[in-house]
Design a protein around this nucleic acid. Structure first.
Lengths: 297, 297
DNA sequence: TCGGGACTATGCTCTGCAGGCATGGAACTG
DNA sequence: CAGTTCCATGCCTGCAGAGCATAGTCCCGA
């Protein structure tokens, strides 16, 4: 049973005769006649009754017909899908990103996608391995490391690393805090696996500031919750919760910032679409986070 | 693109290598390698990336994979369906019957079918052509004529032809009426296309009774409605409506009766199932109409 | 750095099957 | 009864698909 054979069967069933169907499928009547018989033998079912030199769809054939038509339709669908991939279309897109980026940036961005856009799937990835995800099912990778040169990429945004304190904190009327001042407060930092923590550590090291009390939080929400409880300053890059007051953290080279990049395989069949999507994501970041966008292309 | 080819693609995609897939689909690695390339050429899409001697599903391939799997699954479904037809199973059944039988007998019977029974479709047919319907899509035909010998068949029931009169009619305390008495009342009969009318006409002729006033009604409900309006006696075989009072009509050879038969093609792939269904329909008629069942097999 | 192993691609060959042509046979039609 | 229409069968051919042998490529470990 092959698609060709099924097509023959459907043609004969629909035209009502082998001769007529032969015209439709562009083979000769004898070839078609044989194929139909072979199909019947293979399936073990009489699809047609041969009453009086003519062919007539049998009861079994009537039941089988919709199955055959269905398979052919699906096959057509698959072919068309392939054609659309060849044309650079993307039906579904898998986006790999670290957790924080996923919830704060990607998720709200996905909400802006329209019906014509690919159906998105997201895959949480370790920030260090985000670009590797492109080799294992992801179409677009978002990460905080600059992507390797071999990938096509766009810089999406430069986001501040915030120090969040309670509204009644002594810093509640300030917009920013210097690193060495921050070191005097209990720092509710993330574990070193998180980018904001790495940035904080590096900035402290470069500024020669020795950290004061640091509490490792496994999760930005926890850090913020502790800050809301007045237990210190949460250093994260998330959006603020619990009515916390945000402060920029000023280091030796200016405010602490975390970069965001989108990257994809340049050989991806829909590389163009991916580029457009990345550009839209960048604009989305501009809208959402103001002018803090990297000019790099 | 054939089912075989799609199977090859899925095997390679799922095993992750041509060599491994070759074992699965029982062809040699070179043959498989070529088939995959041909499929890619035909579809115009790179399904795999050939990075470093190894094959890796490309983004387009990842999108295409579910399509291919779907087609294969459906094809399997079709094959299984065919197998079940070969085993005499029936997924859907089309029952042809005249209108009255359809609403009064078949419809309530269908309500008793279970989930394992075939999904029924009914087709209203002219009583004279019911058996011809077997040649044009019907699996089971119900009719009032005895079926031709070449068909497999069962007698289902013998139903009375009723004379329905209003509850305040002069006959309201009688169970039956004789033909010649009926001829003194206005007879609300069906058009001659309906079996009850034919039976009435033949019985009158045989009894040598000349009919009195006869009103042709195109439809049993109309006849009953007129009877309910006190315009005469409705002669039909339907169930009573409007609280009408039923009378058996006694002719020369006893009460007027209408027979009901089920017939099907003896060569039908599910002839056995059809026979069982007909037997159940017969039992259903017993339950519904009492002992008025023909003993014929 | 080199050799072995694992994998894919390609050249060559062969076989089986699909399809074409010619023809026979059956049934309906006028 | 001849003509037409349709399906089946025999025979032949060409091609696609599959096998075998082998070359090329990459990775890994000694």
């Amino acid at each position: 049973m092959e698609l060709r054979t099924l097509g023959y069967f459907v043609a004969v069933a629909e035209t009502g005769s082998v001769s007529a169907a032969a015209d439709v499928v562009h083979v000769t009547q004898p070839a078609l006649s044989r194929q139909i018989r072979q199909l019947e033998t293979e399936l073990g079912v009489e699809l047609f009754t041969r009453a009086g030199g003519r062919l007539q769809l049998s009861a079994a054939g009537r039941q089988f017909l919709p199955h055959a038509q269905d398979v052919l339709r699906r096959a057509d669908g698959a072919r068309n899908a392939a054609r659309s991939y060849a044309a650079g279309r993307l039906e579904r897109i898998t986006i790999a990103a670290p957790t924080t980026t996923l919830t704060d940036v990607i998720a709200p961005f996905l909400a802006t996608l329209g019906r014509d856009d690919p159906m998105p799937t997201v895959s949480e990835s370790d920030p260090r391995e985000a670009y590797d995800a492109l080799r294992h099912g992801a179409d677009l990778a978002i990460a905080t490391e600059p992507p390797p040169a071999r990938l096509a990429s766009t810089a999406l945004a430069v986001l501040p690393v915030w120090a969040y304190v309670r509204a009644d904190h002594q810093w509640h009327d300030r917009d920013s805090v210097r690193l060495k001042d921050l070191a005097t407060e209990t720092v509710l930092a993330l574990t070193p696996a998180f980018k904001p923590r790495q940035i904080l550590d590096r900035a402290m090291e470069r500024a020669g500031v020795s950290p004061g009390t640091v509490v490792d939080c496994s999760n930005p929400q926890v850090a913020q919750a502790l800050a809301a409880a007045g237990r210190g300053a949460a250093v994260v890059s998330d959006d603020p919760r619990f009515g916390l007051h945000p402060l920029e953290i000023v280091g030796r080279d200016g405010p602490l910032r975390i970069e965001l990049f989108a990257a994809w395989e340049p050989g991806h069949h829909a590389a163009e679409t991916l580029g457009e999507l990345a550009a839209r994501l960048r604009l989305f970041c501009v809208d959402r986070y103001g002018a803090d966008v990297a000019p790099t292309g």
